[in-house]
Design a protein around this nucleic acid. Structure first.
Length: 554
RNA sequence: GGGCCUGUGGCUUAGCCUGGAUAGAGCGCCGGGCUUCUAACCCGGAUGUCGGGGGUUCGAAUCCCCCCAGGCCCGCCA
């Protein structure tokens, strides 16, 4: 819709001026779309931009393809203002279920996110990965892509060996009511403290790592058991966060099925291979200073080898491979991409996000320095319940509890997804527990308001002809939604959707305060009810794409 | 030491890729609005050397170079 207008107007400008780029941008407060083409043509035509803009406006107004669009020159700017037909068309589309869905695609996408090491609970840094990843996943589905979401289970790393060593050698009884992942973390932290005191333990851990690499059945069972327990804990947390994976892929499977060995053999044949005690790749010709180590001198594979095998498998089964990874993986991510390219395999696209730290410094599972996602969820639900109880004391306790869960989820997800991924953040309890403007609950509230209006009418005749400035502004905001979804998947930046949903809520709230709906009559009432229905539907679709419940009352 | 990312009112942040109309918002501050469709809201006000310096351009928060500050990375860890 907006996209169609963009194309039509862009083509008209290109045809009329003979340029390649129509220099079309958002018109902001001045227009729906605007072009700065007059500046670009000034030198070539040896005329003032203002004159060029005037001439072009006159010329374009005659173009039948642009019928219904008001074209005016404001100084050197060419402004395009869409007419009522556009607004009606937007409204007709926006009241239908699934508004914002884009045409079905055939490109199969695999998206990997979270993939935290199973050595302790998910903390507020990990869930930035989960929430960026899950929001992207929802946007991809909305954009019509067949998608599989995977969690890569690092079940054979050193940390897991340390966990297993702890269970074998320390007092590791589970405390009553203790969650599995919290239990694992406690043992992991204790084991690391022992390692600090006694270096001999490292040797015992190394032995465990060789046993797991060689597939020693007893060791495999022990590793699987603790990793599975930790994952069970993760699954509870992720369910609370409305984050879902289609498949959990175990790293050790790529050793067992021979994929790692096969890819290591291919790597050996590369001109960049350096086989001494270790097997490594020299990628210095591509700007990587350090060697990319594939195999240790004792013959065991390192993470990179298994990761290459995993990515080769993904590349063989999907058309696009996308990974969501923390900024600490930038270098190895780039080395992975470089190596995949050299192997002639499909190169993964990597979405990086910067770190979340605590006011006192970086988080560390090993040192026990972290705020767990579970603690955050518990705290925010408590706060949300108090808030709901204060506002809606008449509701049943069960209803208030349910609303509090949805509000808490919205607050957490929105607080995290709204920030651009390249910005590092410091976790702040006050900001995380905020339910006011620029928050998830604020957007939910706008949606609940729209629902409340619609609940109060039996039926109405849909009317798509808007009149007032506020009505039209709201419809034009609604019109942007499909293009926003497209931008999210094209740019792999989910915070665009967060910003959009908030702006739509802002526009609706302003409309709400200036334009009575139920208290108006006749055609005015009908068209405003239609508009409220459209905004309710768009907010619902946007919230659900953000993984937030579009609740009807709060 | 090298590489990547970030630096926008007191605080948090959008805009930067793809240069253009008075840099947009929230919190906090000041003032106003609930017998009214849900005030988790709305309206108005004060607050900005867009880290600093140079350059490109008719035009720079946006592009290029240098510098400063912070984060992350540079392992036979993952």
């Amino acid at each position: 819709m907006l996209h169609d207008m963009y194309t039509v107007i862009g083509n008209a400008i290109r045809e009329t001026t003979g340029t390649d780029d129509a220099l079309l941008t958002d018109g902001g407060e001045h227009a729906d779309l605007a072009s700065t083409i007059a500046f670009a043509l000034a030198k070539q035509k040896k005329q003032a931009p203002v004159k060029i803009a005037q001439d072009l406006a006159a010329e374009l107004t005659k173009n039948p393809a642009l019928a219904g669009v008001t074209i005016e020159a404001k100084g050197p700017y060419l402004n395009f203002i869409f007419g009522s037909a556009y607004v009606s068309e937007v409204l007709r589309a926006a009241v239908r279920p699934g508004y914002g869905n884009l045409p079905k695609k055939t490109v199969r996408v695999v998206l990997e996110h979270t993939s935290a090491n199973p050595n302790g609970p998910l903390h507020v840094g990990h869930i930035r990965n989960s929430i960026i990843g899950d929001t992207l996943a929802r946007a991809f589905r909305k954009a019509g892509y067949p998608l599989e979401v995977q969690y890569y289970v690092n079940d054979m790393g050193r940390q897991i060996a340390i966990v297993v060593w702890g269970f074998d050698n320390l007092d590791s009884t589970q405390i009553e009511g203790e969650k599995e992942d919290a239990h694992i973390a406690r043992v992991y932290i204790a084991a690391n403290q022992e390692i600090q005191k006694d270096e001999g333990i490292t040797q015992q851990v190394n032995v465990l790592m060789q046993l797991i690499e060689n597939g020693d059945p007893a060791t495999v069972r022990k590793f699987r058991k603790e990793v599975s327990r930790c994952l069970d804990g993760f699954k509870v947390t992720m369910k609370d966060l409305n984050v879902a994976h289609d498949r959990f892929v175990w790293e050790s499977d790529f050793i067992r099925n021979g994929d790692t060995e096969r890819i290591v053999n291919k790597l050996k044949e590369m001109p960049q291979a350096r086989e001494e005690e270790t097997l490594a790749l020299d990628l210095s010709e591509f700007g990587f200073e350090n060697k990319y180590v594939i195999r240790r001198s004792d013959g065991t594979s390192v993470y990179a080898a298994r990761d290459l095998a995993y990515h080769a498998w993904k590349g063989a089964n999907f058309d696009r491979v996308i990974d969501v990874l923390g900024a600490d993986h930038k270098l190895i991510g780039a080395q992975l991409q470089c190596t995949m390219k050299l192997l002639g395999e499909r190169v993964p696209e990597i979405v990086h996000f910067e770190f979340v730290s605590l006011p006192e410094g970086s988080m560390s599972t090993r040192a026990g320095k972290f705020v767990s996602a579970d603690d955050l969820i518990t705290e925010i639900r408590k706060r949300a319940f108090d808030e709901v109880t204060a506002r809606r004391p008449e509701l049943e306790e069960e209803t208030r509890k349910s609303i509090a869960e949805s509000v808490g989820l919205a607050a957490i997800r929105y607080d995290i997804v709204k920030v651009s991924p390249e910005k590092s953040t410091v976790f702040d309890w006050k900001d995380a527990l905020d339910f006011e403007r620029q928050s998830g609950p604020y957007i939910q509230y706008a949606h609940a308001r729209a629902c409340s209006i619609l609940d109060k009418v039996e039926s109405f005749t849909e009317c798509f002809d808007l009149e007032t400035e506020q009505e039209i502004a709201l419809a034009k905001q609604i019109a942007r939604f499909p293009m926003v979804i497209d931008s999210v998947v094209t740019e792999l930046r989910p915070h665009i959707l967060a910003t959009y949903a908030r702006e739509l809520a802002d526009t609706f709230n302003t409309f709400y305060h200036f334009e009575p709906v139920l208290r108006s009559e006749g055609a005015v009432r009908n068209r405003r009810l239609t508009l409220v229905k459209a905004v309710q539907n768009t907010l619902k679709e946007a919230l659900e794409t953000l993984g937030i419940d579009a609740i009807h009352t709060m």
